Simulated scan of single mutants.
Amino acid sequence: MIQLMELTVNGERHDLAIEPRRTLVDVLRHDLGLTGTHVGCEHGICGACTVLVDGAPARACLIFAAQVEGAEIRTVESLSPEGELNDLQQCFSEHHGLQCGFCTPGMLMLAEGYLAEEPEPTTEEIREVVASNLCRCTGYQTIVEAIDDCASRRRAAFQEQLAGSRV
């Protein structure tokens, strides 16, 4: 059976005809060509497939595409639509939080969702959050440092905006 559905991914609407049993990660990669979302364990354990669904991190391998119809889905491609690194990606690069790169898209989306929810995390809180995604290279320390640095930069930019609006 084929189901007609509409998905909004990275701000773009897509009309699709898919089987209801297809996972979101499969639709993203195979139907929409968004291969930045990686497929790892396919059991929701590794976090390589993490995307944002209505701003919250979610494992795309555990969600049927039909379950997120009407939701706003963001993949790692949304972070740099013009090809320029965003601030989070830049911090990952500067702190060498990339290593082999397999976990990176999931880590980036996890961090993006987390920092939107918690703009002033402690290092220990960041460490707890990233522990939910697996890094085969054990690059957690540099990933934590990258996220911490990005949070600091975002807070500083916000403070500058506030100061500028008072003038």
Rank of each mutant, 00 (worst) to 15 (best):
L52M: 01
A71G: 10
T37I: 01
P119Q: 14
R21Y: 12
L134T: 06
R29H: 07
A116S: 15
P105Q: 10
H43N: 11
V130P: 00
C150A: 08
R166Y: 03
L34N: 04
E125Q: 15
E94T: 05
V51G: 00
D149C: 10
R29F: 07
Q3R: 15
D54L: 07
D15R: 14
G113H: 13
G106R: 00
L108E: 07
I45F: 15
E124P: 12
T50N: 04
V25H: 03
S80V: 02
R166C: 08
I73S: 00
S165L: 15
A58G: 01
T8L: 01
F158Q: 15
L52I: 04
T8S: 06
H30R: 14
V27T: 06
A60Q: 02
T138G: 02
T75Q: 01
Q90G: 00
E145M: 08
T122C: 03
E125C: 06
E124C: 05
E120R: 05
R127K: 10
I2Q: 15
G33Y: 00
A163S: 09
E117Q: 15
V167H: 13
G33V: 08
L79F: 14
V144K: 00
S152W: 09
R155D: 13
D54F: 08
A157Y: 02
C46P: 10
G83Y: 08
L115M: 13
S152M: 11
E160D: 08
N10G: 09
E125K: 11
R127P: 02
D148H: 15
C100K: 08
D26C: 12
E77V: 07
T35H: 07
Q67D: 09
L16C: 03
T75I: 10
P20G: 10
Q141L: 13
L7G: 14
H95D: 03
I63T: 11
S152E: 12
L108P: 11
Q161V: 08
F64S: 13
R59E: 06
R153L: 07
E128S: 12
C103N: 03
E42L: 10
P81D: 08
A71R: 09
F158H: 10
Y140Q: 07
H95V: 03
F64T: 13
E120M: 01
S165I: 13
I143A: 04
G164D: 11
Y140H: 03
I73N: 01
E19S: 11
L79N: 04
E19D: 15
Q161H: 08
A60D: 12
D148E: 14
S93Q: 13
E84Q: 11
P105I: 06
F92D: 02
H38E: 09
V53H: 01
A111V: 13
G83S: 06
G83V: 06
A56D: 07
A56N: 10
I147H: 07
G70K: 06
T123Y: 09
P119C: 03
T104C: 03
S132I: 04
G70H: 10
E145Y: 04
G33T: 11
I147Q: 00
C135S: 03
L32I: 04
P20H: 00
M109T: 08
E42I: 01
F64Y: 12
L62P: 06
M109K: 06
G33I: 03
A131W: 06
C150K: 05
P81N: 01
A60K: 02
E117D: 11
T138N: 02
C103L: 03
Y140M: 07
E125I: 09
T104S: 09
L98C: 02
G139T: 02
G113W: 09
A146T: 12
